[in-house]
């Protein structure tokens, strides 16, 4: 998975894609995931880091992360590896 590296996320959760000119709002956990994706973390690694930080379980995280990735793909912020 490859995230658009130019994405600028500000502290208040405003995300700007300079390539397309689109703007988004993202919640704190969403911003953390995008930052992790930008620094090249794998899906497994992201889940394990989030499990350390948040009061939830692995199954829920897997399902929600999958859903979040789908939306990022739909917004063309994330693409499958070539």
């Amino acid at each position: 998975m490859k995230i658009n590296e130019n994405l600028a996320i500000s502290d208040n959760g405003f995300l700007f894609n300079p390539t397309t000119g689109e703007s988004y709002t993202v919640n704190p956990i969403g911003a953390e995931i995008i930052e992790m994706l930008k620094s090249g973390e794998t899906q497994e690694r992201i889940i394990s880091r989030l499990l350390d930080m948040y009061d939830t379980d692995k199954k829920t995280l897997e399902k929600d992360l999958h859903d979040f990735s789908d939306i990022l793909k739909q917004y063309q912020l994330l693409s499958e590896d070539e």
Binding site: L15, E22, S23, Y24, T25, V26, N27, P28, I29, G30, I33, D52, M53, Y54, D55, T56, T60, D64, L65, D67, F68, I71, L72, Y75
Partner: peptide
């Protein structure tokens, strides 16, 4: 202490 979980969420500003 772990943070309260909320699922990740992103929405396009239109």
């Amino acid at each position: 202490e772990k943070k309260q979980y909320e699922r990740p969420h992103i929405i396009k500003l239109e």
